[in-house]
Nucleic acid binder design. Structure first.
Lengths: 133, 133
DNA sequence: TACATACTGTTATATTATAACAATTCTAAC
DNA sequence: GTTAGAATTGTTATAATATAACAGTATGTA
């Protein structure tokens, strides 16, 4: 009768995968995650993708769309997971979550001329980080 | 001695694929494109991806990262392909390129605290379009 | 206890994208 | 016009990313 590991409200697989992403200094791809958790009994892609989907849904992690990779949320477990912004170094691949209240407010209140009301946005900036330029 | 079709500076395959994307009311995926151009002699994925890469590079099309799909640029063949913004309907999947000078200027002049100078950004807004809400 | 919901494990397969190599066409310079 | 380099093409194979489908287990609430 194994117990689910529900510290933080996460299930066992979710916790294992979140911990891995949270410790990583860089975004992790799904199959990199898979290779790294096989020793913990997570054997197949659907197990990884299901945990990732859930973690994204509850704002513990974000997907970097341009890289198909995942990072842990750095904004107090992301109340603002509906308003994400990242800076991405094109040389070393480093990704940093941007938490800038003015930027976030500016974009959250942006309304499209064509009558669309936005619920969510994702912004990705690209350039060279301090080290690489 | 077939000639390349160089109206607009595009090669034959690039022109065929651009025309298809440009006529489409919605973003097209690479393999949808492939199926639609097989009758024109483009048979294999690399042919499609190479043309797509080039068209993205020269700003004739943009990739919608969250959908792995491509749309034609609507901003005068995109002088601003380094500063893209889209509105995406989560219901009907419609994608619209946003050309808002103020938004573009605001984001282009945004500088990250951590000393990174940005060259390019991509912004994706999600919500419900006028029809779907 | 018993039911609904969420999570897990598993196999197979779908979808998206690139590597590698040989051949052709284009462009610009001579 | 020849020639050389760059860009484009055609082709086969395969890598990388993601989901369908189904059976079983755990959890939480009535």
């Amino acid at each position: 009768m194994t117990r689910m590991h529900k510290e933080n409200n996460l299930s066992k697989n979710q916790q294992i995968i979140f911990d891995l992403i949270d410790k990583s200094p860089e975004p992790l791809k799904a199959y990199t995650i898979l290779y790294n958790v096989q020793k913990k009994g997570i054997n197949a892609p659907p197990q990884v993708y299901r945990a990732l989907d859930k973690l994204v849904e509850i704002g513990k992690i974000h997907k970097i769309e341009s890289k198909n990779a995942f990072v842990a949320c750095k904004n107090s477990d992301c109340e603002i997971s509906k308003a994400t912004a990242f800076s991405i170094c094109e040389s070393c691949e480093m990704v940093d979550e941007i938490s800038d209240v003015k930027l976030s407010k500016y974009l959250s209140s942006f309304n499209h001329k064509k009558g669309m009301k936005f619920k969510r946005f994702n912004l990705e900036f690209f350039g060279l980080c301090k080290k690489c330029k």
